[in-house]
Nucleic acid binder design. Sequence first.
RNA 1: GGCCCGUUGGUCAAGCGGUUAAGACAUCGCCCUUUCACGGCGGUAACGGGAGUUCGAUUCUCCCACGGGUCACCA
Length: 550
Amino acid sequence: MDWKALAEYLFPHVKETPEEIENRYPKRELAEGAKVTRIAPSPTGFMHLGNLYGALVDERLAHQSGGVFYLRIEDTDQKRSVENGVELIIEAFRNFGLTPDEGATLTGETGEYGPYYQSRRKEIYHVFVKDLMERGLAYPCFCTEEELGKMRAEQEANKENFGYYGKYAKCRNLSFEEIRQKVQEGIPYVIRFRSPGSIEHKIFHTDLVKGKLELTENDQDLVLLKSDGIPTYHFAHVIDDHLMGTTHVVRGEEWLPSLPMHLQLFQAMGWKPPKYLHTAQLMKIDPETGAKRKLSKRKDPELALSFYRQIGFPNVSVLEYLMTMLNSNYEEWRMANPNEPMQSFPFNTKKMGGSGALFDMDKLMDVSKNVISRMSARQVYEEVDSWAKENDPEFAALFSRDPEYSQAILNIGRGGKKPRKDIGLWQDVKPYMAFFFDELFTPDYSQMPALDRQMIDQILTDYQSVYDPEDDGTVWFNKLKEMCPKYRLCGDMKAYKKDPEDYAGSVADLSMVLRVAITGRAQSPDLAQVCALLGKERVMRRLKQAIERE
RNA sequence: GGCCCGUUGGUCAAGCGGUUAAGACAUCGCCCUUUCACGGCGGUAACGGGAGUUCGAUUCUCCCACGGGUCACCA
């Protein structure tokens, strides 16, 4: 077989040589140890937690080492591509502060190693395919989907390995004449790699996450170019990551089975493969079957990044949670460095776990409450404001009507050593502070303590003449204590607990009466501060309103 | 079915031949406390099974079981 002639016959339009292409992609000039990583998503319409998980590793690896973090769009599958897919990708990463240094952008691309869209690199792939073919390492395959299906059924029946290899690789040894004939008949074909491997051989490889691996050599004649001339992921990965100078490839462990294939391709090309980090999968318990399984795009809406945004998790919370999964010592570091930016954490691939982790919403919530408790009232205000504008415009209007008022509310119990942790989601803010707004004040008087109605009303009446908005917390509470004897309530909790029978109740009941009247519910932040914010007029009105209750 | 990865409490996880087997979340109890939210203290709770190597295995090797992934002209 004259491979050179065949290559020329099938790729007459390819004039460039591999050397010429390589010269267009010079070695990057980076400091020793600098890592080049990339995120290479497909524009399928939405970004999910898995993308972010990997991207976080990519970004940290690159920027922690003074390297480059770039974005390449893997749009080789036009069937699954979505109109504004690229914008969604770029926006999602930007929201999370993972901005690539080069690659695809909203307006085009930046960087010297492009094009960064695989769909724009067709000519490049063809040069290398032609080269492989000239060396007898690639050949056209005319098998139809139907034939392949039949083959698979036969393999299943014979309990043989599936796939296109050995004796099943029917097109492997077609003669030039046969090929020419089929091409002239207009039969579509793909270009396959002629695998020199055998499953009798083992290969050894060290993965940065999984460690030492013993894998079976690849013997599959994988498709390099689809019938439309566009490369498969496998081929594009090898060509692109070589030319673009990627030093570290971070991807999910579902890619592990195709690693031998990729390694074989790198070898055939005469290139040094990058380091690989095959990250563990994010899992969940399937609510229907009760089984642990990989998080799925289709079945699990909580996987979409937009889901977290919608219910109002701060991006930082999601990032911090992912980081705790990525590096288990992150939590420890965070406790020791509560105010450091996440970027100061010494991220280490050695600390990455090798097994799949269940996604834990409770844990995320806890992380988020801590994240938010560390923010200033002003920060929280701004985040809530922008979240609410998008997701709850009605509340947004109330919330932003008086920014100082809202911030003062958010400031209750904020800061200090033991800050309140009421908010984990921006969604939580509305129920938390609703009673501060007359429009949302829907009192539940059934929460009143078990005292006589008459007594409760008396307390509410009396308090109106006692209340002074100028009182500070201590004075405020002392006044409540002083009121107690009149109703046979005990002003001293310790004394009350000793002999509860001697009293009708305690100052706790009295303050609960006021709390329910003023906030409309049994739980609230510090009542004195609440009253101070509500203002005298509103407090008085609510006290009266409570007396008039049904 | 073949190939591959994994298996420490409910969850995430330290551990890398000798430990009372960390810590976090969740859960339970107590304390603090005018409610709640914090905070403090404490409890329940784990090395999948079997061989082997070793004076000694959670840690090393093998087998099995279970879980997961993968076997496309999708990535």
